[in-house]
Design a protein around this nucleic acid. Sequence first.
DNA 1: GGGCAGGTTCAGT
DNA 2: TTCCAACTGAACCTGCCC
Length: 680
Amino acid sequence: MEKQESQNSSLDENPKPWQSYHTVYTNAKAGMDGVDKEKVQRVVYEMSKGSKYYENEERKEAFIRQKIEHMRARCAELTPHDISHHQKVADKRVAELEATRDLSRTWLHIDMDAFYAAVETLSNPSLKGKPMAVGGMSMISTANYEARRFGVRAAMPGFIARKLCPELIFVPTDFKKYTYYSDLTRKVFHSYDPNFMVTSLDEAYLDITEVCRERGISSAEIAEELRARVYKETGLTCSAGVAPNRLLAKVCSDINKPNGQFVLPNDRMAVMTFISSLPIRKIGGIGKVTEHILRDVFGINTCEEMLGKGSFICVLFSNSTADFFLSVGLGLGGTATPQIRFRKSISNERTFSATKDKAFLYQKLAEIADMLSADMEREGLHGRTLTLKLKTASFEVRSRAVTLQKYICSSEDILKHASVLLKAELPVSLRLIGLRVSQFNEEKFGAPTDPTQKTLNKFIMSGDASRKNVGDENSLGSDVSDQHFMQDEEISISLDIHETSHCEFTNPFDNKCVPNLDDDNHRFAYNVGEAENIIEPSSDEIEEENGVSRFLEANSSDSQQSEGRHHDRIEAANTLDKEALSSSNQESKNFWVDDYKCSICGIEMPPTFIEERQEHFDFHLAQRLQKEESGTKLRTQILQQRRFSKDPASHGKRKKLKLNKKEGRYLPIDMFFVKSNQNF
DNA sequence: GGGCAGGTTCAGT
DNA sequence: TTCCAACTGAACCTGCCC
């Protein structure tokens, strides 16, 4: 009832709740210019709200918002001196990157127009002119341009697509057909650049520098001719982008889609002008999350604005990430043709209706092991790292891996080891199981089969092991380590942030009634000087705590070893946690205005976000503690009073605090936001 | 401190 | 009616061991 009222009141305040549900489905995409974005957003929201998927998306969204808050706080704490110092570092880095600019190559990016849909129309002309999507009710792979006008697009669930466009025709995927047509296009590409790079069935990069020179014609003419030839050979249209590097060529191929092309001259001024107004989301490697962070933390919307925020970027991101962002600001990208790259992993996964039926889950595991083994045999692969991927009924993704002494490939071996990994996770309700094998035996590449020789082999295979890539091959030998003092000087201590406070208070950070931080299992320190004074549990305390052990859920190998005790412990923990939880829920009401809004920063988080709200509370608590001059005294009080408990629903993720020596304080890892992405 | 293993996250198609 | 995929690569974290 209370929840209902709360929902109604929030609906009154926000009559368009779908506007805050961030989906990728309303982003600009070729063929979607005239789409009623608000309608699409509303339909997607209404089809999604209340579902487990939606709840998971909200959890993720709240987590990103929290991350953004942390980063904003970090920026706000920088002194003019700090900013000036980091600006110099950024300027130096920009100059070094600028020196790597290569305008001597001409790259062509080819992107087939709505490839799967176009192939299907080719084989069934009656589909022409009708809205059509390739895929099924759960997910569609691509949609033709008629369907896109309704807001239907790739990676959208079919049932939402049908709601947007009731007359939508669904066609099942047929990869044999797509591979056939893809091969036809590649024959054409080969005649322009024998070393062309494929990125998927429908995309490729060609270095057309030589062909332009040899034939004495412009890149625009080559692109025009190539597209005509592709059409002649396949009956399919494609779009092309020409630019001095691959990053820009990819952006350019999207500009005049479908069946068009765009040429960006090999000229620095032209590149910088092009970049100046280019939205960051257009760049490959900047996705939904990164866009959100760059926009909401730094106010960066266009690529050029990256350079204006160079100092902050250098403070808050890792070396490689900062380099990537600054390169984007300069319009730099890959220009050399990379070496042949071998497959690094192979996987197989299947989604099914969520179930906790063990027999069913083991059956699925066996089926996936069979399929994976067959794929590996077909490619002659043997690997020694096996990763089990699970998606729970609530859409939480987990992975568990094991590295073996010997290389495996047979279905029996895969299943044997995968079963051990799965067993350690049960009981759990799952909707997806996947298996991935990596760390291949490199025998097929002429390397030794002994895993111990792998390091040397890797070195030989990769060429210069010391080379650090920016984009994909720009070599930058300069020393910029000073700008990344945080990573270099970090010392880790751990703090499990799923604790629940037991102390009642009116002002959540009033020293008179501080939450009790006396958690035996959690090492916690506030000041640099205390780094050595990390509170470690005594052996007796550990023993005592074992009844409700939070250590038990730390990682899978522990789980496997203590599986028998594990279950009993969880039972015991659950009982205590329930008591603790009901108590803490009452207390936190003072922290959350109207049981919804943070009394410190105003961020809104619904009462159902128990875990996220606790994390948020802890963040402000840490902030407050760090500001306290009498930190030690306060800490003593806290350590005496606070009792932690654990949300049984949480999965034991241990959040870390890191010591930033320069600032002389500890920060949760999230505040550093060390970006992890292959493109950075 | 470096290397390895395990894990998480993001991104693209 | 159906109700949010499959696959791969990669960066970078922590913990552990030598």
